[in-house]
Computed example of a mutant assay.
Amino acid sequence: MPRINTLPGVPRWVALAAHAVPLVTLPSGLWRIALVVGLPVAAEPVTGAGETLYVLSLTVVSEALALLTLGLVRPWGETVPRWIPLLGGRRVRPLAATVPALLGASALFGLYGWVGYVQVANLASGGITATQAQLWLLLLCYIPLLAWAPLLTVSAIAYHRRRA
């Protein structure tokens, strides 16, 4: 098996969990990019600069937040990189990483419930897809997101146990 570059003392399963987070967010981001560029992935294309900016921003922000999970198993999650002004070289307090990570995971768990409710309501009105192929592609791209919150939770708890 290939070696994952992490800190000493990080169990392999935790490193795998943290590295999986950006991968489980990627398919939904690719689906949103396909929507913006006009590929037939939904019933209605994205129209307007504001909507395009929103969809692309959602993709960039979600992937950036997912990449932050790597800090729970990498050196920059324990010591702020030197190139960051004012904070570079300082140790990261365990709660400064753990609390935001667990709050983020809690928000994701809450979002799952809300999105599930909205999707059930949308199915009654036709949903955002027009064909079965579009629906299956949407599901294929968005179902991996369900792993984000549990993976982030176990990574954050393992980080806190290791550091505290």
Rank of each mutant, 00 (worst) to 15 (best):
L65D: 05
W76P: 13
I143N: 07
P144M: 09
G77A: 06
Q134E: 10
I143V: 11
A156N: 04
A66L: 05
R162L: 11
A147V: 06
L140Q: 10
H160Q: 10
A121C: 02
A130W: 00
S62A: 13
I128L: 15
A124Y: 11
S57N: 10
E51R: 15
V37W: 04
G127P: 15
G89I: 08
A66I: 05
G38A: 03
P94Q: 01
R74M: 12
L53V: 12
A101S: 10
V41R: 03
A42R: 10
A101R: 02
G71S: 04
R74A: 15
L70Q: 11
T98C: 07
V120N: 13
T59L: 05
S62I: 01
T79G: 06
A124W: 11
L151I: 05
A121D: 07
G77C: 04
T59V: 04
V154K: 14
V154W: 10
W83H: 08
I128T: 14
W76Q: 09
W114T: 15
G110I: 01
R162F: 13
V80E: 04
L123Y: 15
V73L: 07
V92K: 05
T153E: 07
V115I: 14
V36L: 02
V92E: 03
V55P: 05
V115Q: 13
P100D: 01
L108C: 09
G48C: 00
A43Y: 11
Y159M: 04
Y159S: 02
V99Y: 07
A49R: 12
T129F: 11
V120P: 11
W136L: 12
G48D: 00
W76F: 13
G116I: 12
L72Q: 00
W136T: 02
L56C: 09
T79A: 05
A105P: 00
S62M: 03
L108A: 11
L39A: 06
I128E: 10
V92Y: 09
R162K: 15
S57E: 01
Y54D: 09
L140V: 14
L135P: 09
C141Q: 04
L53C: 10
T131H: 13
L102C: 06
G104R: 03
L146H: 09
L68I: 07
Y159L: 03
L72C: 02
A66D: 07
F109H: 00
A133Y: 08
G89N: 12
T153L: 07
A107L: 11
P75D: 05
L95N: 08
P40R: 08
R162E: 02
G89C: 13
L53A: 14
G71N: 04
Q119V: 13
T52M: 04
T79I: 06
L146M: 14
Y159Q: 00
E51P: 06
A130E: 06
G88F: 12
L86D: 03
I143D: 04
L103W: 08
E44P: 01
S57M: 15
V41K: 06
V120Q: 14
I128F: 12
V41H: 00
S155N: 07
Y117H: 15
A97H: 06
V118Q: 09
T52F: 01
L108H: 10
S125Q: 12
R82I: 01
A49T: 08
E78T: 14
L103H: 01
A96Q: 11
V46S: 04
P94Y: 00
L53Y: 09
L87T: 00
V115H: 11
